[in-house]
Computed example of a mutant assay.
Amino acid sequence: MQQQKCYVIPGLLNAGLLNGNQPIYIFILNQIQDMKEVSLKMNSYLQTVNAFHPYTWVICNQQTLQLEISEVKQFLNQFCKNIPLQQFQRIDKLIIISDTIQLQQLINVIPSAWSTILTNKIHLVLRLNQLINHNIELTQYQVEFLSRINNTYQEEIPFYGRDISEYPLANTGVPECLEAILQYYDRHDDYLKKQGVFRISGSVQQEQKLIQQFQIRNYSVIDDYDPDVVSTVFKNLLCQLKKPIFPFEMYDILKETQINTSKEKLLEMFQVFFAYMPEVNRKTTKRIAELLFHVADYESENLMGLNNLSIVFAPCFLRPEQTNLSDLQGAKIVVHHFNLLVQNVEFFLQEFRINRNSIPQKVQHLI
C-alpha cells in the first residue's frame, strides 16, 4: 500500500488508513487558508482513496486553540457547496473536538441538505486523546504535531517515496530503517525459512503503525510485528523510492540486452554502473543481496530460490522512469540479470577500482 501524505494542503491532514480500510481526514480549521482549495482536494481524495469505503471526518483547531460553533457552521456551509451529496452519504463518523460546543448546537448547524444523513453520525470529543474511543488511535507524535503546527508549517515528509539519501543513515552506511529490518532478519533466521517468505503481504493497519514508529526513528518495536508486515514495509520502501537504487537508465539498458548475454559482459556492465552509484546505494545493495543469497539457502523449506526472489525484488531495485509496453516485455530479461547481480554482488563491489576515464564513451553517455 502506498502511504498517503500526512498533509495535503494547509488545514487538511490525511491521517492514513488507521482504522482498517477506512480513511480518516482531520480538518484543522484555524489552518485552512483557502476553503475552496481544501474542499476540491477533499473531493478528489474521496473519489480516489478507497472510493467505495466509509470514511471519518475529524474537525478541530490546533490543540491550544478553542473551537467555536461559529467556525464549525461556516466550515460546513462552505463545504456543502463543493462536495456532492452522495459523498457525504459515505461518512461513517463526523467527530468534532471541542470543550466549548454542545451536541445540540452541532445538530442545529448541520446544513439542511445533510441533516438526515449526518444527524446520527455526529460525535463530540473534548480532547484529541479521546479519539481512541472511536477506534482512532493517534500516536503521541501526531498529537504533538497537531499542537505545534502553525501557518508556516512545512509538509510532513511521508515515509515512502523519498530518495534513499533522505533517510537517516546507520553506522553501516545503510538507511537506519533498512538496517533495522535487515537486523530483524539476522535475529530471526527462522522467519527466512517460512514458505513463501517475502511473497505474502501483511496487515495494512499494522504496516501503517510500524511506519509511524519508523517515522519517529523508533526501531526497537520491530520485533513486536509479524514478519509479513515487516517484509511488506521492506518491499514498499524499496519499490516506492523517488529514484530506484539503480538508475533508471540501467533498466533501459538491461531490457535491451539479450537473455543469453555472456556473464562477463554483464559483470562489466554492472561494475560500470556501481562505479557511478552513490555510496549509500552500493552499500544498501550489498546488504540486501547478502540477505537474499542467505534466504535462497533455505529454498527447500521456503520455496524461494534466487529466481523467485529475483522476481519479487528486481522491481524494487530496477524500474523504468515511465512504463510502456516494451518495459513490460523486457521485465523478464531484467529479472534474469538481477538474479546474476545477486549471485555476484561481491564481484561488483570490489573497491570500485574502475576508472571513470577508462569507461568507453558509448557506455558513459548512457549513465
Rank of each mutant, 00 (worst) to 15 (best):
K41I: 05
Q205W: 03
V49I: 13
V204F: 05
E37N: 12
S70C: 10
I200L: 05
E71N: 07
K286L: 11
Q31C: 13
V363D: 09
K209F: 10
V143H: 11
Y251H: 13
K263P: 00
E179P: 07
E37T: 03
D190R: 11
K242F: 04
L210P: 09
Y219F: 02
K362G: 10
Q271N: 11
I222R: 01
V58C: 04
F214G: 02
P23I: 08
P158F: 11
I288T: 05
L106I: 13
H336Y: 12
L238K: 05
I259S: 09
V295M: 08
Y141N: 10
N82I: 15
V342Y: 05
I69L: 06
V295N: 08
N308V: 04
G173T: 01
F52C: 14
S165K: 06
Q78P: 00
P247M: 02
Q329R: 10
L17A: 06
S326A: 04
L318H: 07
W57L: 09
N355Q: 11
I259P: 10
A15K: 01
Y25W: 08
L366Q: 15
F313K: 10
Q142P: 06
E299I: 09
V49G: 01
K255Q: 06
V230I: 09
T119R: 14
L13K: 12
N339E: 09
Y225W: 06
V233Q: 01
L292F: 09
P247I: 10
K209N: 11
E37G: 04
F75E: 04
R90Q: 13
S98C: 08
L65S: 10
T152Q: 15
L210V: 13
E144S: 08
I83N: 09
I9F: 08
V295Y: 06
K283L: 07
I181V: 04
G330T: 02
L94G: 14
F234Q: 00
Y25C: 01
Q206C: 00
Y225P: 05
E301P: 13
E256D: 01
E176H: 02
L254I: 00
V342N: 03
P315A: 12
K36S: 13
N171D: 15
M277S: 06
H53Y: 06
H134S: 06
S112L: 11
I311P: 03
I110W: 06
S115V: 14
M42N: 08
N30Y: 03
Y251L: 08
F273L: 02
P54K: 15
F159E: 08
